[in-house]
């Protein structure tokens, strides 16, 4: 049996008296498609911040494969293959997509330290960036400054940047956040088409997509995991119904 791609043990985090993560334990098998759902404020993004090192847990362990990564800096985790996207666009406004993705490829290949050779002499890195953009239908926009791109395109670029790091485990924080329903199909197609060897955990509020795409679902409430199960189990669980209906009507 191979080790899970990503797992946590007893993860705790509190801000003062506010508990944002309580005894979080789960593991993602290699190549799995997991969804993380829960009402607003359940601690989903906090959990991603903990796993990617943007927050330090008060207690607990995070393992990437067999390796403990709890104390590694965010960039070290990325170089080991644990990569995230952001709910709110976290892009490079004045760079165009070609430059931004080339930057990410150069960082991964370790050539971003080179300052005496022009970027044009690294043709392979540029080609790879261009291919990634092409695979996400961004070729036509790749010379326009990011800040001028339509919002939906910027959401795609979020994913393109993450893919350029060659992730083993990809954490998608509401990839379609803010995208109108009729335009989100393109994004969902991209996510559904991600290579099978990448392990994916995604936060999403569109339940149609969650139930269609995820093999298992983790439900979070109030900083803790309420339950984990198949879409069928989760849909049938009365506690989940209560949480969602309660959250909507409250």
């Amino acid at each position: 049996m191979s080790a899970p791609a990503l797992s946590t043990r007893g993860l705790d985090k509190r801000f003062g008296s506010l508990v944002v993560a309580r005894d979080i334990e789960f593991s993602l098998p290699q190549g799995a498609r997991y969804a993380l759902i829960g009402p607003n404020g359940a601690g989903k993004t906090t959990l991603i911040n903990l796993m990617t090192g943007m927050l330090r847990p008060d207690a607990g362990h995070i393992l990437l494969g067999d390796d403990e990564i709890t104390r590694l800096a965010p960039d070290q985790r990325v170089r080991r293959g644990l990569v995230r996207t952001f709910q709110i666009n976290t892009l490079f406004p004045h760079l165009n997509p070609l430059e931004a993705v080339t930057l990410a490829v150069c960082e991964r290949q370790g050539i971003a330290r080179t300052w005496w050779r022009p970027i044009t002499s690294y043709g392979a890195a540029v080609d790879e960036a261009y291919a990634i953009l092409g695979s996400l239908m961004l070729s036509a926009d790749c010379y326009r400054p990011t800040r001028e791109l339509p919002y939906g395109r910027q959401r795609l670029l979020e994913i393109a940047l993450a893919l350029a790091t060659r992730p083993k485990v990809l954490l998608l924080d509401e990839p379609a956040a803010g995208v109108p329903r009729d335009e989100s199909r393109e994004l969902f197609e991209v996510i559904a088409g991600l290579p099978g060897d990448i392990t994916v955990l995604f936060i999403e509020h569109d339940m149609n997509f969650v139930f269609r795409f995820a093999s298992r679902i983790i439900v979070m409430v109030g900083g803790g995991i309420l339950l984990e199960g198949t879409p069928h189990e989760v849909a049938a669980d009365p506690r989940v119904r209560e949480v969602y209906l309660g959250a909507r009507h409250g």
């Binding site: 990617t52 800096a73 965010p74 960039d75 990325v78 990569v83 995230r84 952001f86 976290t90 892009l91 490079f92 406004p93 004045h94 760079l95 430059e99 931004a100 080339t102 930057l103 150069c106 960082e107 050539i111 971003a112 330290r113 080179t114 300052w115 005496w116 050779r117 022009p118 970027i119 690294y122 890195a125 940047l161 993450a162």
Partner: peptide, 19 residues
């Protein structure tokens, strides 16, 4: 150079670079 591109990345979004 690639290094120069990364510098612009730091200027444009210091949060995204470690990610």
């Amino acid at each position: 150079s690639p290094f120069g591109l990364s510098l612009r990345g730091i200027r444009e979004n210091a949060l995204r670079m470690p990610a």
